[in-house]
Amino acid sequence: MKRYTTYIFDFDYTLVDSSRGIVTCFRHVLGNHGHTGVTDTEIKRTIGKTLEESFSILTGITEAGTLADYKREYVKAADVHMTANTFFFPETIEVLEALKSEGAVLGIVSTKFRYRILDLFEKTGHDGLVDFIVGGEDVKAAKPDPEGLLLAIGRASGGGKSEVLYVGDSVVDAATAQAAGTDFSGVLHGMTTREELEAYPHVAIVDDLRGILPIPV
């Protein structure tokens, strides 16, 4: 793959497997309100969407106040369960360090709260590895709106959009890159299939993050 000056990543199912923590938190809220019959796979398929969207998909509820209440309960549960049940994929740190050593600017754009992402990097001793994080609290409109990705591009130094690669696992990420006008690489860490990602503009669909490393010349 070509060399970019800036690499921006989604977080859940792209850099980390947070599915155990996410399922635990959803199960806590769903159980509190009698929503039975929701499978782990159904929960995992919502990863990358906002919490309100996810709860609406899983329960059929559309009333904004109820969804906001569910979100607040989820956030409280996540304060307890999320970081301890989130793990970097085996190649994540190796790839980030390789890109960093070549002078690339590294960023994250996620619907997850910025402080929760920072917590994992700090607790695993990798704080400072990424240059900036745009979290859900930093934007008014969630992905696939390009607000967060465009904010991240603005924070990156040097080059224009042609020098940026956005890496994500879902069609939400693919649509975000398309809306922002940046190159996109899909990674098959999550629940989204290769065929689903290939329906969007992309420079590559890779099995794991090693596939985005520049080819030596």
Rank of each mutant, 00 (worst) to 15 (best):
A84D: 15
R155M: 14
G31I: 13
E195H: 00
L120N: 11
V109H: 02
P201K: 12
E137M: 00
S56W: 03
K44S: 04
T6V: 10
G103R: 05
G181R: 11
L58C: 03
F87P: 01
S56F: 02
V164F: 11
V16C: 08
S110K: 15
G107C: 09
I57A: 14
K140I: 14
A98W: 06
F87H: 14
D145M: 07
T59A: 03
A156D: 03
K123W: 04
A156L: 12
L213G: 01
S54M: 02
Y4K: 09
F55I: 14
L67K: 11
D79G: 11
F11D: 03
K49C: 05
P201Q: 13
G37L: 06
V29I: 12
H28E: 15
V16K: 04
D12C: 06
R155Q: 11
I47G: 12
G158C: 05
I47P: 08
D131S: 02
E147C: 02
L197S: 04
E196T: 06
R45N: 15
T36Q: 09
G159I: 14
A152D: 01
E196G: 05
A68E: 09
A141E: 14
R20P: 01
E102H: 08
C25N: 08
S170Q: 10
E137H: 00
G190R: 04
R20V: 15
G181K: 10
E63K: 07
F11V: 04
L99M: 03
D138P: 03
A142M: 02
I117P: 09
L120D: 12
V164Y: 10
P201F: 13
P144I: 07
E163F: 03
P201C: 13
A199K: 13
L118G: 03
D183H: 15
R45Y: 11
R210F: 07
L58R: 04
A142Y: 12
G158W: 10
V16L: 06
C25I: 06
D169E: 01
V80Y: 12
K161C: 06
P214K: 02
H81G: 01
L15E: 07
V217H: 14
G186C: 05
H126E: 01
F11W: 12
F113T: 05
E137N: 05
T111K: 10
P214G: 02
G107M: 10
E97M: 11
G21T: 04
L150W: 05
F55M: 13
L30H: 04
A78P: 00
A204R: 13
R194D: 09
D173L: 00
T83P: 00
T192D: 00
H28Y: 15
I22A: 06
D17C: 03
G128M: 05
S18W: 09
I61N: 00
G211Q: 07
H35M: 08
S185F: 02
T124P: 14
Y13W: 07
H126Y: 08
